[in-house]
Design a binder for these strands. Structure first.
Lengths: 248, 248
DNA sequence: CGTTGGGTTGATCGACCTCAATAAAAGTGG
DNA sequence: CCACTTTTATTGAGGTCGATCAACCCAACG
């Protein structure tokens, strides 16, 4: 059986993620949610021909900070963590990537962060150059990409507020609410169960906290019956309470 | 005489900033540094016809968070602070805007942050719709805008590292180095004097610190002869020391 | 089984915050 | 130009939130 940590990975493809058919766009579960949503059928198969299917196991690395950025990725299933390391080992996770997310918005020479898989992961991989050339012929795709980048920028600024001006409890609550919203886009059911494919350490490195503090805040919220801690996730029992903390 | 806090405002236009001539693009000091650098002479005057000169005094507001975003701006002189407020009054400054900076990258329905002038400020103001339409006819401008947004995103992620994983002293050092780099792009002289048009409170709200801590860290650095505190700025005495702290 | 990695919990510590006083600078009105 | 107020900056004393250090639990796995 699969590791518990991947139990919630959604959306899982019903077809084998390695077969060519599964990565073909018309069967892609996240097409409408990703950059591909901006493309017509003809353009889609054009893009499809540029893509190479990528399949990684948990903890495998997609790319590393400061490396030449040779690829861009569109995640089709699984999740990843994006992070920067300081010379002395301190780590800041700048984001978690979920299915439908595009990695390589920056189109910069070198990667500004590292990325590795939290769970088994599949993605469409493109050569950065080929993708950039394709982009030059598709202004509406560029527009889509730009709107994604704008959205990411806005999320990054929200994260600045969280990191700079919120308490530990508020940080954890904001994290849960933010993640819930992102899962909700992906899953048809508006679940109150939030999959947490990342470790407590990862959450801490995302929120500027230690593992212990994350653990303590989660148990506190659980003790107050605001959440229920379940294997590889949490269930929101008192959504209003958590939302209140998050936007305080 | 001008207020000391604006003593360093660069680049000041030699012509009156209110006259039509002064905002005309061929005399614009920051043209090559801003989005306008992506445009040919003909396109430039086309864009110029869409622009309205804006002139604000210190502390005057450009736009507010959650308002409908009706304009985008290109700052030609002076500086501004961009911030989000929490319901209880806590504030996070998400960035400082300097001459050449473009506000409105997001092209979102509503502003995701507020902006007000730190010093007297001039800008080219565009109707968001008119600008967006213009953008549709100029793919290379969109590309420029996207590359700016990418760069902003990268800066935002760097700021996350600073907010989440650095000590107070490192934060202040990183702030000085980051600002120094931005001023350096603008001024021809590679000055070691860094203008600080913002208050200590602003710096604190940018770095996730209190005024007192910012003040203490600056005095500590000054006591160690790493910097010299001058009116409305600091002079770097030991650049290597500050850089070391900043990238640690 | 023993080992390993992740998670929780407790005790203690310290970096930064809070509160308070003072100083310095900038605006204001006569 | 000078009193006066207001804003900004600095400095000190003391408190606190989250970090650190350490022990322990548990599930997965070879």
């Amino acid at each position: 059986m699969a590791s518990p940590r991947e139990a919630f990975s959604v959306p899982a493809l019903s077809l084998c993620p390695n077969s060519k058919a599964a990565v073909h766009c018309d069967q892609c579960r996240v097409r409408s949610l990703s950059i591909c949503g901006a493309l017509e059928s003809g353009e889609l198969s054009e893009l499809d021909r540029l893509s190479r299917p990528l399949s990684l196991g948990a903890r495998e690395t997609m790319f590393e900070q400061d490396e030449l950025a040779e690829s861009v990725f569109n995640i089709t299933s699984g999740s990843a963590r994006l992070y920067r390391l300081l010379p002395d080992g301190r780590r800041q996770i700048v984001g978690f990537a979920l299915p439908g997310d595009f990695l390589g918005l920056a189109l910069t020479e070198r990667n500004t962060f590292s990325a590795d898989a939290l769970t088994p992961l599949t993605a469409c991989q493109f050569s950065r150059n080929a993708f950039s050339d394709f982009l030059d012929t598709k202004p509406h795709l560029l527009r889509k990409l730009h709107s994604l980048a704008s959205h990411e920028l806005s999320l990054a600024q929200e994260q600045m507020v969280i990191l700079g001006r919120r308490t530990a409890e508020e940080k954890v609550a904001a994290f849960l609410i933010g993640l819930r919203k992102r899962w909700a886009r992906l899953s048809t059911s508006s679940s109150v169960t939030i999959p947490l494919p990342m470790t407590r350490q990862d959450i801490g490195d995302f929120l500027g906290l230690t593992v212990e503090t994350v653990s303590r805040m989660l148990t506190r919220l659980a003790r107050e019956k605001a959440i229920l801690i379940v294997p590889d996730g949490v269930r929101l029992l008192d959504v209003a309470r958590i939302e209140g903390l998050a936007e305080m």
